[in-house]
């Protein structure tokens, strides 16, 4: 969570990918290198720029379900609760 572990986990969960493939997938979608995925300094900046949720919830940054909306788009993954939210809010 401090870097990109939650994103890699999401890809494992949604696509059943093993670690190397999942890391490569996330790195490509975020336009970073695989080695940068585990760097908390770089990843905090990337997460902030992409609005996909971060440890420190600064004013105006995407939080909770908002971050997952963006995450779904950035990673091109269906996220169950995001889809449910869209249904319930008629988005």
């Amino acid at each position: 969570m401090r870097a990109a572990g939650d994103l890699v986990a999401r890809v494992q969960m949604a696509r059943g990918m093993r670690i190397a493939e999942a890391k490569a997938y996330v790195a490509e979608k975020l336009s970073v290198s695989v080695s940068e995925l585990t760097d908390p300094v770089i990843m905090t900046e990337v997460r902030q720029d992409l609005q996909i949720g971060q440890i420190m919830p600064l004013p105006g940054c995407a939080k909770g379900i908002e971050a997952k909306f963006r995450l779904s788009e950035v990673l091109e993954l269906d996220i169950n609760c995001v889809n449910r939210f869209k249904d319930r809010t008629a988005i």
Binding site: M13, G64, A67, C81
Partner: peptide, 12 residues
């Protein structure tokens, strides 16, 4: 669960 999903972004 529904409330938790609104306020977290870790896979749950």
């Amino acid at each position: 669960l529904e409330q938790a999903l609104l306020s977290t972004h870790v896979p749950l």
